[in-house]
C-alpha cells in the first residue's frame, strides 16, 4: 500500500490554486505541551498549510538566540523527543488536518533507536522530518528507513552548497528546504545577496517543491519569495511571538491564555502571502 504522502498532496493542491505554502515552526514544550497542542491548532486556524514541530535540544547548532531560548525553557520542563511526537497525535484528536513535520537534531533520534523512531513517527501521524545536523554524507540509514516508511526526509540546502545543490535536490523528498542566508535561524533584515540565483539553481535541480526559510519574519518577506518558491517557513518570528505571549499563556487564567493564543494566531495569519492574481 503506498498512500500519497500528505505533504505531496498539499503541494499538489496549492499548485492548482497558485498559492504559496505557509509553514510555521513551533518549539514543543514552550511553555508546556498543552500549549504546544493549542499553538499547532492555532496555526492551522490561521491558515498554515503544514507545521514543523521543533524538538528542543541542548546544543541547537543551527539555531539562533530566539529558538535557543525556547529550547532552554522547554528543556527545563524536561521535554523530550517522545513528548514532542505525542503533540502531533493530540493535535489530530482536536481536529487538526494539516501535515506534521518533525524538526529534530540527530542525537535524540539516535538514542531512541532508528526503528523505534520510525515506528513512532508513523504512529503519531508525521509526514516528514528535518534533521539539520544530518547532511547527505551521513544520512544513508535514515534515508533508507524514510523511503521504506513513506515519511519524507526533507533536506536543507544553503547558498554555500554550490556543487552540492544538485546532489541534494536530486534525491530530495517532500520539499527542499532552502536556507535563505548564511548563519543561524533568526529574524534578519537582509537575505543572501545571491538568493534569487540560488533559488533558481535549486528549482532547476529539484523535482519536488522548494521552500525558503531562515530569517523570514513578515508578510513582506513571504511575498518577496512567493513567486520564487513553493512555500515559506517561519520559525524564530513565531517563537518570539510565543515568548512575548508567555505571561498570558502561563497566567493560569483561561481568558489570558486565549488572548495569548489569539496573538500568535493573528501573527501567523498576518504572514500569509496574498495569492498572486
Amino acid at each position: 500500500m503506498s498512500a500519497t504522502n500528505a505533504i505531496d498532496a498539499v503541494f499538489a493542491k496549492l499548485k492548482a490554486s497558485g498559492e504559496t505554502a505557509l509553514i510555521p515552526f513551533i518549539t514543543m514544550g514552550d511553555p508546556d505541551l498543552d500549549t504546544s497542542v493549542a499553538l499547532v491548532q492555532a496555526a492551522e486556524e490561521a491558515g498554515a498549510h503544514m507545521v514543523e514541530l521543533g524538538v528542543p535540544y541542548s546544543d541547537p547548532l543551527a539555531d539562533g538566540p530566539v529558538i535557543q531560548r525556547a529550547s532552554e525553557r522547554a528543556l527545563r520542563n524536561r521535554i523530550g523527543l517522545l513528548d514532542c511526537m505525542a503533540v502531533a497525535s493530540k493535535a489530530r484528536e482536536r481536529g487538526v488536518t494539516m501535515p506534521f513535520i518533525l524538526f529534530t537534531y540527530f542525537n535524540p533520534v539516535l538514542q531512541l533507536g532508528l526503528e523505534r523512531y520510525f515506528d513512532l513517527l508513523k504512529e503519531h501521524g508525521f509526514s516528514g522530518m528535518i534533521i539539520p545536523d544530518l547532511p547527505l554524507e551521513e544520512d544513508s540509514e535514515v534515508r533508507a528507513l524514510a523511503e521504506a516508511s513513506g515519511i519524507h526526509l526533507i533536506p536543507l540546502v544553503a547558498p554555500t552548497s554550490e556543487a552540492r545543490v544538485e546532489r541534494i535536490a536530486a534525491r530530495a523528498q517532500g520539499f527542499v528546504y532552502c536556507v535563505s542566508s548564511l548563519g543561524v535561524t533568526g529574524v534578519r533584515s537582509s537575505f543572501h545577496e545571491g538568493i534569487d540565483a540560488f533559488l533558481d539553481s535549486v528549482r532547476r535541480a529539484s523535482s519536488v517543491p522548494i521552500c525558503v526559510g531562515f530569517g523570514i519574519s513578515s508578510r513582506e518577506h513571504a511575498e518577496r519569495f512567493a513567486g520564487l518558491c513553493d512555500g515559506v517557513i517561519v520559525g524564530s518570528a513565531i517563537v518570539r511571538q510565543v515568548e512575548e505571549a508567555l505571561p498570558l499563556l502561563t497566567s493560569g487564567q483561561s481568558s489570558d491564555r486565549e488572548r495569548g493564543l489569539q496573538a500568535v494566531r493573528d501573527f501567523i495569519a498576518g504572514l500569509k502571502p496574498r495569492a498572486a492574481v
Binding site: L61, A62, P132, P135, L156, S161, V179
Partner: peptide, 9 residues
C-alpha cells in the same frame, strides 16, 4: 561530519 548543510562546504 554531523553539521548543518550551511557548514559543509
Amino acid at each position: 561530519k554531523y553539521v548543518p548543510e550551511t557548514l559543509m562546504n
